[in-house]
């Protein structure tokens, strides 16, 4: 029984000895409802694109094109909204003299999720951090790839957490006491989101309208959705903090595509020095990533 996994929210907490709680967590979720959010548009836009990439993928992988040749995993893979965003990143990246054509972004493949899971995560994280006139949302930033890659490693296995028995349900102040690993919590949470969507709207989560997706997420956030093995809000918190991590971690991890997460909030990334601006007024700087440190 997973309970009180409030530790996942630690990601939002401030630095030592310096900052107060900067993340206000008032239960104001209702006000987030908005009808003009853009991600359903994204899905439509991308629908035309993914046919092209599917064709390309199939050619590259030696599959014979035909209406019956593709089934199972392959047919679902291309439902994801932004499977080509990685390629765009290459085009948008600073010019490389030796580059003749944009290489594909080989990072954009799945280490853990099934394609169906990936689509749910891709659309759910986009609702958590949506595209707007300020810049791209989670989907274009590659957040679902980030989460996939994280679940495949140490973090997904709770490799550095104390996972020894006995397990007891504890007080809220005692933190996560479940025996499930993060990847198992994701498996369960995504399945439950899908079930909830099917029950309520007769469609899978990824196929819902944006407002409906928000309703499902709110039901999880508030524990209105009753799950048996985990609490819905536990999963939601994990999904939310993983989304923020995917938006703002170094692009080396697969999210924060083209450093656009940083750019939107004027965060200059992995700079070596601010000695020249520390005593100055606000200074806008083009971000840099860890990759830039490799050449130095």
């Amino acid at each position: 029984m997973v309970r009180n996994n409030s530790n996942e929210m630690v990601a939002e907490k401030p630095a030592e000895g310096s900052e107060p709680e900067q993340q206000s967590t008032g239960e104001q979720a209702g006000s987030a409802l908005s009808s003009d959010i853009t991600s359903d548009t994204d899905v439509r836009e991308s629908a035309g694109v993914h046919d092209r990439s599917r064709r390309k993928f199939l050619v590259n992988s030696g599959y014979v094109l035909g209406t019956l040749a593709v089934g199972g995993a392959l047919s679902t893979l291309f439902g994801c909204a932004n499977d080509n965003e990685g390629n765009k990143q290459e085009e948008a990246a600073p010019a490389d003299d030796n580059k003749e054509t944009a290489a594909p972004n080989y990072n954009r493949a799945l280490m853990y999720f099934t394609p169906a899971q990936f689509r749910i995560v891709d659309s759910a994280t986009e609702r958590i951090f949506p595209e707007d006139d300020l810049g791209p949302g989670a989907s274009k930033l590659g957040v679902a790839f980030f989460i996939d890659h994280q679940l495949a490693g140490d973090w997904g296995f709770n490799g550095r957490d104390y996972m020894q028995p006995p397990f007891y349900a504890g007080e809220k102040t005692q933190g996560y006491q479940g025996r499930l690993k993060r990847r198992e919590i994701f498996d369960i949470g995504l399945r439950e989101m899908e079930n909830y969507s099917m029950t309520k709207y007769s469609k899978g989560f990824a196929a819902l309208e944006a407002e409906q997706q928000d309703e499902v997420l709110k039901a999880f956030e508030s524990d209105e959705a009753k799950l048996t093995t985990i609490t819905a809000s536990t999963f939601f918190k994990m999904l939310r903090s993983a989304t923020i991590e995917g938006v703002y971690s170094d692009p080396l991890y697969g999210g924060n595509n083209n450093m656009d997460g940083w750019r939107m909030r004027n965060y200059p990334g992995a700079q070596m020095s601010y000695a020249n601006v520390i005593d100055k007024d606000f200074t806008k700087m083009e971000p840099t990533s860890l990759q830039a440190h490799m050449g130095s």
Binding site: A11, Q23, S24, G26, I37, F129, P130, W262
Partner: peptide, 24 residues
């Protein structure tokens, strides 16, 4: 101390914790 972006997302009380409003 350097407000690194994953851990520092201050918003006024009453702001939604995710979605369009949170992002903005």
């Amino acid at each position: 101390t350097g407000a690194r972006p994953i851990q520092n997302n201050p918003v006024p009380q009453g702001t939604a914790t995710w979605g369009k409003e949170f992002k903005k």
